[in-house]
């Protein structure tokens, strides 16, 4: 199983880098955000890379997870357990939204964007202030623990990478890709199309939900617009496309490289950065639609 070994090495190296980085670099927020974006890009990859559905409203699951976990923490649940609550909240939302998978292409993307905006508006509605604190946002300062939340983030990242690896190597993952290419033939070949897509959808939501929970715990004071910000979806999509979807390393590479660039350039010259980002997307679609990893794949090199 040389492929499996390659995946194991890739995951181990990435995790070791994130585990050791805090001893060398003091701004843990940058490291935390980077790990969160690697996990989000991989979570998006579970859906987009393996089924072709591009969820513009991926942040809806992230925000739902953030609110689910935070409200659980405020109700007295230990934070680690609360992360599971956050993930569960996102999975429940995804289950309710399963009918969206009947839509194709751009319709699905826009509908998912609309649900994310709807979630933000529902959470911040004053009528729900007793439940969600409405527009006042949440304050978890009592549970604030940057180190624990960082390690929790790394565990989530490890599980996400393992999930993508499984999809990349297992018959189930192959079946999903067959559905993406040609649902009719795949169905005739005995692939349970609806079941396979729904499974990828729910798993992808679970990833975003748990990352959102860890993010909220790490941030500890936030408003609805903080965790339902459209730019979170955008970042995850761009990172995935840039690296190359349907691989393990593509989205991770995209997230690490572009987030590092964002931290180095974006913070001091953001307008130029947004311009570069926009033009980068245009260029990618026109000239490199399958991302960085496709440069290697074209030469017959297997990328984990």
């Amino acid at each position: 199983m040389p492929k499996l070994r390659g995946h194991a090495w890739a995951i181990a190296v990435l995790l070791a880098a994130f585990a050791l980085a805090p001893s060398f670099y003091g701004n843990h927020s940058v490291l935390f955000s980077m790990a969160a974006f690697v996990a989000l890009a991989e979570g998006l990859n579970v859906l987009y890379g393996f089924t072709g559905y591009l969820p513009f409203g991926y942040v809806g699951f992230f925000g739902t997870g953030a609110y689910g976990a935070s409200l659980a923490i405020l109700a007295g649940t230990p934070p680690l357990l609360a992360l599971l609550v956050g993930a569960a909240a996102s999975v429940v939302l995804a289950a309710l939204l399963t009918p969206l998978l009947r839509l194709s292409g751009a319709y699905f993307s826009i509908a998912s964007l609309a649900t994310a905006e709807a979630m933000r508006l529902i959470v911040s509605n004053p009528a729900l202030t007793p439940l969600t604190k409405g527009p006042y946002g949440l304050n978890l300062q009592a549970a604030f623990h940057p180190h624990q939340s960082y390690w929790a983030m790394l565990v989530i990242l490890a599980l996400t990478l393992a999930l993508v690896s499984y999809l990349r190597l297992s018959p189930f993952g192959l079946a999903l890709q067959a559905v993406r290419e040609d649902p009719v033939s795949a169905a005739m070949a005995g692939v349970p199309v609806v079941y396979a897509r729904s499974a990828a959808w729910l798993l992808s939501a679970a990833v975003a939900g748990s990352v959102g929970g860890a993010f909220a715990w790490h941030l500890s004071v936030f408003y609805p617009q903080t965790v339902f910000s459209l730019s979170t979806s955008i970042f995850a999509i761009v990172f995935t496309l840039f690296g190359g979807a349907a691989t393990l390393l593509g989205p991770a590479t995209g997230a690490v490289l572009l987030y590092a660039l964002y931290t180095a350039v974006g913070l001091s010259a953001p307008q130029y950065f947004q311009l570069i980002y926009g033009l980068l997307i245009v260029g990618l679609v026109l000239f490199l639609p399958y991302g960085l990893t496709s440069l290697l794949q074209r030469r017959g090199i297997h990328v984990p």
Partner: peptide, 15 residues
């Protein structure tokens, strides 16, 4: 592809 491309264009115009 157009969906993603025009999104990029939108970001560039905004910037």
């Amino acid at each position: 592809a157009s969906f993603i491309l025009f999104f990029g264009l939108s970001q560039a115009i905004e910037a």
